[in-house]
């Protein structure tokens, strides 16, 4: 296990519950969630549809209020979106009337940063994600994978400390997804130790969660609760072929069995 990833707590989720009132009775999306995300850690949350994992991400992002309990980021309670935060959604939500470069610069524009200061960084990011030369294209001229790459660049532009990713590759085909898994780990890994971003990654793919993460959080549904947290002790850097190693197989099998025991997956 990478010693550097066991840093201080960056996000602390304590006894968090989320209840949506509805005419046919309240719906409990999250129940009694306790989780610490450590600084510089890549943490994935995996679970079936409707287990509240996206809700969990939204509460950490300050986009939705919790019904009970508390979330704090860097020790401060979350009341609205915290500073130094980047978010990537399943849909890339790029603006069709803007070029790729202008889309990447959008958040910086909102934050009132001077274009001249961030344009160089935006172009460099695009180049690192294989989008060099596409700066002046429009989103609709690009493939789904390229669009999602651009939306990751947009989230990374302001150099966030915390990156929240809500099933970012869920809508992509399997090969593009593998590509992006490799690119994401490479870029996350490239930062010097101690400067690595803290990543909270939501996915419904066990393989993706194990491949990317330092720890995998398993959630079950109705109500959404944490059933297990599994340390992923695969060495880094991880080539894609790590997925063929026995240890990788053991880890995914362990998670799958656990879901099967809970009746969430059939064996």
């Amino acid at each position: 296990m990478d010693a550097q990833t066991t840093g201080q707590t960056y996000v602390r989720i304590s006894r968090v519950g989320k209840v949506y009132p509805s005419p046919r009775g309240d719906v409990t999306a999250l129940a009694d969630i306790d989780l610490d995300v450590r600084s510089g850690e890549f943490l994935s949350v995996v679970g079936p549809s409707g287990c509240g994992k996206s809700t969990l991400l939204k509460t950490v992002a300050g986009l939705e209020a919790v019904s009970s309990g508390q979330i704090s980021v860097r020790g401060a309670p979350v009341k609205g979106p915290p500073d130094r935060l980047g978010v990537v959604f399943q849909r890339d939500v790029l603006l069709d009337w803007r070029t790729i470069l202008d889309n990447v610069l959008l958040s910086a524009e909102f934050q009132g940063l001077k274009r001249a200061h961030v344009e160089g960084r935006a172009k460099e990011l695009l180049k690192r994600f294989g989008l060099g030369g596409f700066e002046n294209r429009h989103p609709w001229e690009l493939s789904g994978g390229m669009r999602q790459r651009a939306s990751i660049c947009r989230a990374l532009l302001s150099d966030p400390e915390l990156l929240l990713m809500d099933e970012p590759f869920g809508a992509l085909d399997a090969m593009t997804r593998d590509d992006l898994n490799v690119e994401l780990t490479r870029i996350w890994q490239d930062s010097a130790h101690g400067q690595r971003k803290t990543v909270l990654f939501i996915t419904h793919s066990i393989v993706e969660a194990v491949y990317l993460s330092d720890r995998v959080v398993m959630m079950s549904r109705a109500p959404g609760r944490i059933v297990d947290v599994i340390d992923i002790d695969l060495p880094r850097p991880r080539p894609l072929s790590v997925r063929e190693t026995p240890r990788f197989g053991e880890l995914t099998a362990k998670i799958r069995h656990h879901f099967a025991e809970l009746g969430i997956l059939k064996e």
Partner: peptide, 22 residues
């Protein structure tokens, strides 16, 4: 897209920016 509006909130966009830019 509601996700677009969430993104604007995370980026601390002002209501005017949301109106005119999105």
């Amino acid at each position: 897209d509601p996700d677009m509006l969430s993104l604007a909130r995370v980026s601390k966009a002002s209501p005017w920016q949301v109106l005119f830019k999105i």
